[in-house]
Each structure stands twice: as C-alpha cells, then as structure tokens.
C-alpha cells in the first residue's frame, strides 16, 4: 500500500454519509428565475465572499 492513506467507514458512518444532503445551488440568475416560475418558489440569492 506504500504511503497511501485511506480510511474505512463503518456501516453507521456510511449510512450517515449516504443520507446527508447538500444544498444544490444554482449559479446563474436566469436559470433560478426559470425554475422559480415553473416550481412556484421564491429565490434565495446568497452573495458570498469568493475569497
């Protein structure tokens, strides 16, 4: 295996990893507006620090 580091997840950790979801951010206003009209949900626009 040399110096390759790796970790084995326990079955519980694998389950948590699979279950956890992340916010799927749009990155273009035009796409968000299209989805907002179709899905009838307002837009959460987050201006973040890019640096």
């Amino acid at each position: 295996m040399g110096n390759v580091a790796y970790a084995v997840l326990s079955s519980d950790e694998q389950e948590v990893s699979i279950m956890e979801k992340k916010i799927q951010w749009e990155t273009e206003l035009v796409h968000a507006l299209q989805r907002s009209k179709v899905e009838k949900r307002p837009i959460l626009l987050d201006f973040h620090n890019p640096h």
Binding site: E26, E39, D46, N49, P50
Partner: peptide, 17 residues
C-alpha cells in the same frame, strides 16, 4: 438543507459577480 430545498430556489454567487 430540507427547508431550503422544499421552499426556495437556492442561487449562490460571489459578491464580486
């Protein structure tokens, strides 16, 4: 995550965009 995905369309841009 659940609240935003159910109620909003999340859009994220840099403050310099």
């Amino acid at each position: 995550v659940t609240f935003i995905e159910h109620n909003l369309i999340p859009l994220r841009v840099g403050s310099d965009t």
